[in-house]
Every structure is written in structure tokens, then in C-alpha cells.
Design a protein around this nucleic acid. Structure first.
Lengths: 350, 350
DNA sequence: GTGAAAGCGCTAACAC
DNA sequence: GTGTTAGCGCTTTCAC
């Protein structure tokens, strides 16, 4: 059964015939220990299978080498890829993670979450919940945040450190590509518009068409909630509202999957009658039928940048040289596949 | 800037004119405090924004209300759904999670991971890395595990507590359904066979066909590695090896997506010429074309059961009434959609 | 080079 | 009811 007692530094000290202090020095690889002493202590450590308590160490050093991560929507692939980037980089830099999942994206009730993390002495926090509705308002309650924090996927704010994908740029690339591949009646299925990211992508679609001299109206788009299921209705409505649509920018790949299905059902040929562009670059996108053109975002990179930056902030504070907040932007990439047509002028360009 | 000093119990005690012990009593909602004292202390706590250090508490109580989670493959949807189940249940039961991601599924080098968790006084550990190759061998080094542990997705062992989906049963359901829908030449694309789960599904396919009087040979299956990309080659080889195949059980949905694409490319009609069944029940499966028949497994449930069981083990030990290890099996569910034909005898049965 | 004393923030045990 | 003492496992400081 478990619960055989933990071996402490004291026992090692006694067994090795030295003080706990000396054991501590050996464990922390301090130079000022005599070689024989060091060896003897190391041998005892081996024998007793001593492992230091990170807890006790954190308590006295006021530093835990632990980061708090608050995330939402782990059951979706996007957030879990971000988390994957976070775990990999944290491991690499020798930090452990305390994970909290916020059950709803819109929640503003963050104090219990924060306290639970702060009570465990996290050195910094990554707020990996995207900006939705008013769910960033709580930040204003703090004139200063209790530990360094990095926020993901939110609108720029001079007082906060943020890592985001360039959603506007991605939406622009998607729409421009549809224009270049010959589409003129380009519709849009947006994500839920209380999401900052969804608004950015929609705005880019609208602006890009505007720049091309095409006015969009409310007939030309519908709103989904990121899920394939929501897009099922969204695309039906859009087909009705906008019957001569010849291209569509869908705000994520999950919803684009539904669009491909709906097109198949209706016998609409993709890309000949309807060009389709998604957003995200999910791993399945090349294997759909037809393979999906999409704006790929590297969410693992977002996660790993967030870890690097929060550790930068932590260490800068330790050196009493605090770092100014900044916004780090990750650029997405357009991946052209068979769900959009390749036109002459594009071939000429390449 | 961060790093304004932490408010401690001492300051609250001084400010309220009581001992730290009394503050502790108030914080822990102990009954033996005079109402006025309690109120005064509570007021000071409010004013000073005191929040107890969970760290210090864990150190003295030798109990952290923290669980360690070791997981792999977070970039895939399966593991992240399991993690989602874990976070939700842990939150519900008042536990915090320390998350470690093992970079490779096959790793046997678990000691640093374990030590990092144990050094932080986790009360129990969920080993959410599936059994692959020899990656469970390390358990044998322990005559007893240092804290209660629950393992996911592995072969039954009398000495370990395990939560698994019934992969064999799922594979059987898939194959039987193909038989019932009129297929006789049923192929299989397996997962990587060093995975226990992949072997279970393949074995079920083979046994079920055997029971139906159909002998399988090595021409009838190929091996993938769970990814859509691997299935692209696996299905090409299978089409060549087994040209008159009329049904296929694919070991997961990601790979089934590739099979649907390959069928489309070759003009093979699903389900008329080829019945397709996947495994997992990813959220996109209903929105593929045609909608995918699949064996759905509730991975969130697996995660939440693991949390419940590990907490059971922890509390049982605290009461000195250790619980025997057991295996908890989650049953998957066959979801019939348009990628398999519905035959008369099934209609009669329903 | 090494050890003794103090203390991180908290609570268990025992006084009063 | 409330305070005092001791100590969780470790490191920092300062002797020697």
C-alpha cells in the first residue's frame, strides 16, 4: 500500500553524519562542499531514495517554478493544441503547470480560480481563455496584477501582455484568395460574434470585399457557434439568403466540414460552383473531400510563446527590472487545396 | 507591478488583536470561536484581502488536495477530451491538478515525472498515457506505488486500478454491424499495433469474422498510426490487396476520414459499394460525407471516473481502509449513420 | 567547508 | 473560547 513515510533531509543528514545544511548544499549543487562529504551524502541519498520536497522549497524561497494555466474549451481541438504548446515549453524550461479549466468561456467569476492558483504560489499565470463578451472586465479590478500574467486571444490593450494570432490578417488572406480564384459573390459564416476572434475574421471579410468594390449586406452572412452542428443550419440559411453565392469564407474548419457536406447533399460542386475556405488548419483538413483550403494557425506556437513570455516577466521582476507589457502576434498561413479553384492569374503570380 | 507582499495569517492576527490560531480557526470554519471574534477577524480578512497559502497548509497537513495528471498526445482530440473529463470532475470535487505531458507515448523514463509530482505532494496520480509497447514496465520496479494511482487504457492487471473503454466490445459491434448490413468481405485498417487499444480492436474484427465463418488473412488488413495521413497509404494498399472488399472497419475516425476521401477520389460509392465504420465518435463524424457510422467512446467519462476512483483510493487510505485495485470498464456505443447500409433484417430487428 | 539558529505560513496539540 | 508551543521540510544567514 501507499503512504510509506517520506524520507526527509534530516534523515539523510543523520545517516550521513552531517548537518541538514550540508545535505541541502549537495542537493543544490553548491560548490562549497568537500568532495568526500559530497560523495558520502550522495550515496546516502541514493540508498534512502531521498527526493526533496518541492513544496517546502517553494515555501521558503517564495518561488515555485510553477505556472498557473487557466483554459476553457478543452474538448475542442484548438484549446488543446494551445495547451500542448504550453506543456511542451514549460517542460523544456523546467516549470510545472497547475491547470484550471473554466467551464464557460464567458465567465467573469475568476476570483476563486485566481486564489486557488495564487494560494499555491504560482510564479506566473497564462490566461488561455479567449476574449468573449465581457470576460475580461475583471482585469480592471486590479490596479496591478498579483503575479505576471499573459493573456491569449484578445484585443490589444496597452496594460496587458497578450499573445494572439492575427485573425484579421487571416480573414483577409482567405477572402483575397477567394477573389483571386474568381469568386465574386462571397459569403461568410462567422463564429459567435461575442468572440473577439470571430469579429476580427468577419470584419476582415467585409473590409476586403469592400476594398474590391463589393458591398456586403446582411444577406451575405450568417452566424455559427464554431461547431459543425451550428453550421448545418447556418449554411442552409445562407443558401436561401444568397442563392447565387459562388464562394464562402467559413470562420473555422469544423464549420467548413458541414459546408462541404451540405454542398455534397445538394449536388453543388466544390470548387467549381462554390469555393470554400476554412480557418484553423485542423489535421483532418487535407483529408476531407475535396481537401480544404484553409488559413492555418499555429496554436502550439501561441502556447509556447505565452510560456516564454510569462517566464520572461517573472524573471525580470526578480531582477527588479520589470518588463513592459507587449502584444505578440502570430501570423497565420494560407494553405491552398482543392476546395478553391486555381485561376490563371494565380498561376501567373506563382 | 506585481510582487506586493503576500498578506499572512500573522498580519491578520495582529490587526484583529487575536492569535494566529484564532484566525486559523475562523478561516477553517471551526465552531469554537466567539461570534464577535469571528466577525472581527472576518472583517480584517476582507480589508487586508488575506488569502491563505495552500502551500503552507499542504506542508503541515501532508495533504494537498492536488492530483497529478500524466498525459500524452494532447494535440490529438482523444486525450484532450479525457483531460476535459478530468478537469471538470476535479474542479467539482475541489481538487487542483498538476499537469505533466509525456512527450512520447512509448517512454519508459517516468522517474523525473513521478518525482516532480511527488515532490509537490500530490495526493494521487492519474496516469493517462495509454499502454504502448513496454511503457508500463516501470510499474514493476515498485513493490508498492508511492501514492494511489489510476491508469487509463491498458490491459487488465490484478495489482493496478485501471479505467478503460471496452475496445474489444467496440470492435465487435463495428464488425457485426457491417455483417448485418450485408458486407461479407470486410477489411480493417488498424491503429499502430504496439498500442494495446489497437490490438484489441483488430482482434475483435478478426474474431467476429471468424465466428461468422469468415477467415481473415493478412491481405485483409493494413496498419495505420491513427493519423489521417497514415490512412491515406493504408487504404491504397488495402484496395490493392483486397480489391473486392465491400466493407471496412477503420480503427479510428481520423483514419476513416481518409478512407472516405479515397473512396470519393476513386468513385467508389459509400455505402453501396463499401460500408465504412470508424471508432471514437469525434464531433465531426456526423458532418462528413457521407455521415460516418462509428463506435463512439465517451472519453470524458473515462477521465471523470478516473478522478473519482483516485480520490476514493486517497480517502480510503486516510481512513486506513485501503481499497483493492479494480478495473472499471466503459462501454462504447455504435452510432449508425449513412456510411453503412441499412438492410432489411436490421429494420426487422428495430 | 560546515553547523546552528531562525523562519517561510500554516495547523495540531495542549494549555488555560 | 483563546493563546502558546512545536513543527511540516526546507533554505538563508551568519557564525566558526
Amino acid at each position: 500500500m501507499p503512504n510509506r513515510k517520506r524520507v526527509t533531509i534530516k534523515e539523510v543528514a543523520r545517516e550521513a553524519g552531517v548537518s541538514t545544511q550540508t545535505v541541502s548544499r549537495v542537493v543544490n549543487e553548491r560548490p562549497d562542499v568537500a568532495p568526500e562529504t559530497r560523495e558520502r551524502v550522495l550515496r546516502v541519498i541514493q540508498e534512502l531514495e531521498y527526493h526533496p520536497s518541492a513544496l517546502a522549497r517553494s515555501l521558503i524561497q517564495q518561488r515555485s517554478y510553477t505556472l498557473g494555466v487557466v483554459i476553457a474549451g478543452l474538448k475542442y481541438i484548438g484549446p488543446s493544441r494551445t495547451l500542448n504548446g504550453i506543456t511542451a515549453k514549460a517542460e523544456e524550461l523546467g516549470y510545472t503547470l497547475l491547470l484550471k479549466e473554466q467551464s464557460r468561456f464567458e465567465s467573469n467569476n475568476v476570483h476563486p480560480l485566481l486564489q486557488s492558483l495564487l494560494g499555491r504560489q504560482v510564479d506566473g499565470i497564462i490566461w488561455a481563455v479567449p476574449e468573449v463578451g465581457e470576460n475580461r472586465e475583471w482585469v480592471r479590478e486590479f490596479d496591478s496584477l498579483p503575479v505576471p500574467m499573459v493573456f491569449l486571444a484578445m484585443e490589444a490593450r496597452p496594460d496587458l501582455t497578450i499573445v494572439s494570432v492575427n485573425n484579421y490578417g487571416g480573414g483577409k488572406m482567405a477572402t483575397e484568395h477567394l477573389l483571386q480564384s474568381g469568386c465574386r459573390k462571397i459569403g461568410h459564416i462567422s463564429g459567435p460574434l461575442d468572440w473577439w476572434e470571430a469579429r476580427q475574421r468577419k470584419q476582415a471579410w467585409q473590409d476586403t470585399l469592400g476594398s474590391a468594390g463589393i458591398q456586403v449586406s446582411d444577406q451575405h452572412w450568417t452566424e455559427g457557434n464554431w461547431s459543425s452542428s451550428s453550421a448545418e443550419q447556418a449554411i442552409e440559411r445562407l443558401f436561401q439568403q444568397y442563392p447565387d453565392m459562388d464562394g464562402i469564407f467559413v470562420a473555422n474548419d469544423q464549420m467548413a466540414i458541414s459546408v462541404l457536406q451540405a454542398a455534397s447533399r445538394r449536388g453543388i460542386k466544390v470548387p467549381e460552383q462554390l469555393g470554400v475556405v476554412g480557418f484553423d488548419g485542423i489535421t483532418e483538413s487535407p483529408y476531407l473531400w475535396p481537401p480544404l483550403t484553409t488559413v492555418s494557425q499555429d496554436q502550439q506556437l501561441v502556447g509556447s510563446l505565452a510560456v516564454e513570455e510569462v517566464i520572461n516577466l517573472v524573471e525580470a521582476n526578480l531582477r527588479n527590472k520589470p518588463l513592459a507589457p507587449r502584444k505578440i502576434v502570430v501570423e497565420p498561413e494560407l494553405i491552398i487545396r482543392e476546395s478553391t479553384a486555381i485561376k490563371m492569374d494565380e498561376l501567373a503570380g506563382g
